[in-house]
Design a protein around this nucleic acid. Structure first.
Lengths: 214, 214, 214, 214
DNA sequence: AGATAAGCGAGACGGTACGTCCAGTCTTTAC
DNA sequence: GTAAAGACTGGACGTACCGTCTCGCTTATCT
């Protein structure tokens, strides 16, 4: 992995996915992948260690055993590193459920998300990233593209298939439909007025199914 | 307004709760209400001026023509002032709709919220407050109690009335039901993957009605 | 001592010399004289410890147990602190020699300077200050006014008296005359092509006397 | 010019001393004289452009279109390049005056120096080099040997000849005598308390002549 | 009418982090 | 083997805020 999304391209560039090498970029010393890894690992560590206010470039550099300049060479901001570290650790793509039943498929995905938020540090990190994004437009863009939309893509496919098999109505605004399921989950994640229980996922998906039925 | 919620033991609190005026709290010069107002006004100004990163105590003090110490005397943090300034400018309570029809009432409230987010600086400020709350537990509590729950109370009443009149099912988890409507709205506010249109409100409420129908 | 020359006024302001207090400058916490002293002392220490490249604000701050901001609040640059520290430790004024004999008086002053350069850290510091001044016009001004001219004043008086008593010619350019004595000394201090011996002082002053004789 | 003095063991040195061209020194690509020239030219440009603080290896490399490593391969420090660039542009040797009259000869040399300081960028550069030399012993050595002493050699010859022809006393310390003329000039160059005028040169040389007369 | 307190503006202070720049060194490829 | 490109550590720069702390003045109320 040689490239850090927020900067210029997607992290998993096509070449990388095919297992090919980063390709030569002319002369000069090549980027040290151990350094990059150290930074991303240290970032994930810091992100997990509760107090988000302690996620500073200075701390990150010393934790990774790297100079600040090296971090700034590759990432434009705190949030950018955080996002890369997060996506480096958590794959934004949800595996397709095997079933063709809409409710089951929807629950599969919603549960997967909620479980990740609840049982891994990801919940913490997503909260931090969304918070940071509120005052950093570049990060907002990157986060939307690389996390929000990546997950929504998976959801979109499920909804579309259900539409094709007639399990939900056909005059549907797909985007709104997805928000109906993901919206409540993120709302609870951020506002913390109620916990993210399995029951909650079941209820939300059940209501959605009924609301979207043909 | 003299009570600044986030601050647990604000001198004026007890009296304020009883609706009485600040009254005397022993000897000494009394709190200058003009100063308080200047701070809250300046805070709201700064909050509105786009770049949230510029909302610092230092700037706030100089903008309000006040010393930093005076701010720290009454509020424990940036977020606390911001919240007070916000609630000082925007009433968290939604007027009860005149109608008894559930869908109309629900739309009334959802539209009111979306319109405030879209057409006033409140959207901006709520985003900032929610962001700040992710790393400030005290602010999170205060924001939840004084904004989130205050609005949800209005919503809860509407849902309850609809339940009583049989417009929606009776075995309902009210909290989840409210999330079904507010969740998607906050999700769009924060993730900005799609705009907060009137059509969106109509769709969300319509889907919810069908999902919650008896 | 409240004022640090390079900034706005002379360090030993008239009031200070008369033993009067720094005078109140309106409201606000007063400047901590212990802090100022700690900075100047630490600066002098660093200045003396050979390697001038180690005289950095960062080191100075940590050595003085003071924050960088405090240093920057009172001095505009490295050189400014250095100059104040130097003048705080070394009085630029040369005591008047008791004699009225020109050669004796001249030697008295020249020897005093050379001895200070040779036997105290002052030589080191003056070299550093002159070096720094070559790329810092503000420092150059301050150094010229507060060190160079202060010393030259003493010299000027001696030359003037000798002129009045007819020991040296009367159609003399005083400035050039002083350069004739001080020039060679500073030249050796900086170029180090030859050592600053007592013999050298004797020779220079003797040649000058003969060159300036009526 | 391939020998860069400050650098003791410059690869090209031996050949250069024999006056031959760089020639082949074993295998591999030969040193690019265009590169060397580009560096020295760029260095002189930067040196002249007023702000000495901008004379950094980084800037020099990019200005010369050369990599930093190439500069470090041939010169040990900032000052070393600066000195080479300076001597590459200004010949340290003063042509012998045709006259045998001491005062005329002395004035010839002193005027030449002052004119170079006043009318070319050399004054600026000498100031920078002397400043840098105060904290770089290697540069100090090189500057003394290659500039200071080279000029003094010319002066020494003039003094010696005057001594032989009886124009000045014979029990003279030559080094002190030279300082008597050059000292005041460098002093004014560096302390800038008075300008370097022609009148000044005339006065200094005249006083010296009288001081040194038999 | 004092005395006693608090409120308040001004601003000094030790800290921490910012984002930038440069010094030197090292690594890779091109010539 | 020289050179260009450029990655990398390390350290200082000067700035901005943080939260705390005097300081001296003002404004109340309590004795």
């Amino acid at each position: 992995m040689t490239d850090h999304g927020v900067h210029e391209a997607t992290p998993a560039s096509p070449e990388a996915l095919k297992g090919q090498e980063p390709v030569r970029r002319g002369r000069g010393r090549t980027r040290d992948s151990a350094t990059t890894a150290a930074i991303l690992d240290a970032a994930m560590e810091l992100l997990v260690e509760e107090d988000l206010r302690k996620f500073t470039i200075e701390r990150l550099a010393s934790r990774a055993g790297v100079s600040k300049a090296t971090i700034y060479r590759w990432w434009p901001s705190r949030g950018a590193v955080a996002l890369d570290a997060f996506l480096n650790a958590v794959d934004p793509h949800v595996p397709f459920p095997k079933t063709t039943d809409f409710l089951t498929a929807l629950r599969f995905q919603a549960s997967a998300l909620v479980r990740v938020f609840r049982e891994t540090p990801a919940g913490h990190v997503v909260r931090a990233l969304l918070a940071e994004a509120q005052s950093d437009p570049d990060l907002a863009d990157a986060f939307r593209t690389r996390w929000v939309e990546a997950r929504r893509d998976s959801g979109r496919a499920v909804f579309r298939r259900a539409q094709e098999s007639g399990q939900i109505r056909s005059d549907l605004d797909l985007e709104t439909a997805i928000d109906l399921v993901y919206g409540p989950i993120y709302y609870r994640l951020l506002a913390t007025h109620q916990p993210l229980t399995d029951k909650f996922v079941d209820d939300v998906t059940a209501y959605a199914l009924r609301g979207l039925a043909p």
